[in-house]
Design a protein around this nucleic acid. Sequence first.
RNA 1: CGGAGCGUAGCGCAGCCUGGUAGCGCACCUGCUUCGGGAGCAGGGGGUCGGAGGUUCGAAUCCUCUCGCUCCGACCA
Length: 453
Amino acid sequence: MRLSRYFLPVLKEDPKEAQIVSHRLMLRAGMIKQQAAGIYSWLPLGFKVLKRIEQIVHEEQQRAGHIPLLMPTLQPADLWRESGRYDDYGEEMLRIKDRHKRDLLYGPTNEEMITDIFRSHVNSYKDLPLTLYHVQWKFRDEIRPRFGVMRGREFLMKDGYNFDLTKDAALHAYNRHLVSYLRTYERMGLQAIPMRADGGPIGGDYTHEFLVLAETGESEVFYDSEITDLTFGDRQIDYDSVEQCQAVLEEFTSRYARTDETHDEAIFAQVPEERRRTARGIEVGQIFYFGTKYSEAMGATVVGPDGNRVPVEMGSHGIGVSRLLGAIIEANHDDKGIIWPEGVTPFHVGIVNLKQGDNSTDSACDAIYAELQARGLDPLYDDRDDRAGAKFATMDLIGLPWRITVGPRGLAANKVELTNRRTGATEEMSPKEAIARLEQVYAPVLGLKVQDK
RNA sequence: CGGAGCGUAGCGCAGCCUGGUAGCGCACCUGCUUCGGGAGCAGGGGGUCGGAGGUUCGAAUCCUCUCGCUCCGACCA
């Protein structure tokens, strides 16, 4: 993309309403615009990152064998009357009447609807296991939205639902989700720690939340420092293997890690003192096993091998997709702006032309731009007729991980600069070498894409 | 929902107390100069002060109501 043709309304000054860094930077970088309390338009740059994150979620879900579909944002109230949650959910549920005075609601989650879909079409245990998911906008009428997209009323969430014949099979689905979530967050450059959680209105005995450590997190967290040494890495996991998934779950959940909701001082005290940590965290996902809570209430049953009809075992699993933008920025920024991890960056590299209108720099930039695109990379070329300082400031603010700087002086010796946004390290090299370097840097990121199974 | 506060140009703000018909910085437009870390000078365009009502000769300023937003708290992917 050429910046002169893009729509990137960056702000020089801090918007007064933004109190936390991710909100401020998203507004300043022209990623979002607030339309009402907790409701945002996603401007091109923000939309691009949102889509990248959503894409990673899709890829990792499908890698784990989960099936995408799409349910509507508006749901009929009757489904929720069946489960009993129409009355239980309270004012957080946005209720709407259509022209025929029928009760509708803007879905805050989809257990009821997915259970309805399941019961309409599945009758035999032979169709299990099955995990369906979607990425769709949700609405929860928070009393007090804040922190930008971290705590919006409208938010994009991936929610998935597993259907299994037995509790053991459902717990494997639980473990499988935990594994796939670890992998998902790591691809986004985040360390998200699974922590024992509370069931909340979804219900369920087995549940973990995934927390990203950040000073601005809304939850206080307590953990054994050993847990932050764990990384998923590039290990290959067979998602159908009960043993392998179980082993990962044990590895990542055996050490003490809890939020203030479930914190137990007595158990925490057993962790060696030098490893006890207290911090703050942002919740970016949660997984639940809740058994037959919804299947019994809504008659979602299958005929088992013995000919008897039994309610299916279920769980649900969510990733706050739009919230993740905030969480990633909270964990990756400096005083100049955002620092995107390579896995989610809106553009792979920024090209800064120091002397727009100069034949040598213009043609060098054009060539670099075209070559990067030809190699499957997505560059942002700042071709505005602006001063160098302004271009650098914009690039730093929007946080592209790499920058190629092209000026007449270096170009005379066939050199450009390649700068790393995070470290600030700059190297001089030929345009050809810079392109090759970037191709190498992004090979793992681009190579991770998977096709539908 | 309880408490606090704010709505004046696209953004950030001053003016309001002590009513006299709107100002600053950034951004934007034009010109000249500048050109490796958000340039300088000169000129220019843009707002009727969230909305409604009231007081007054006169309201951004005072009063009433109302809408929206933000912050703290209880609640939450």
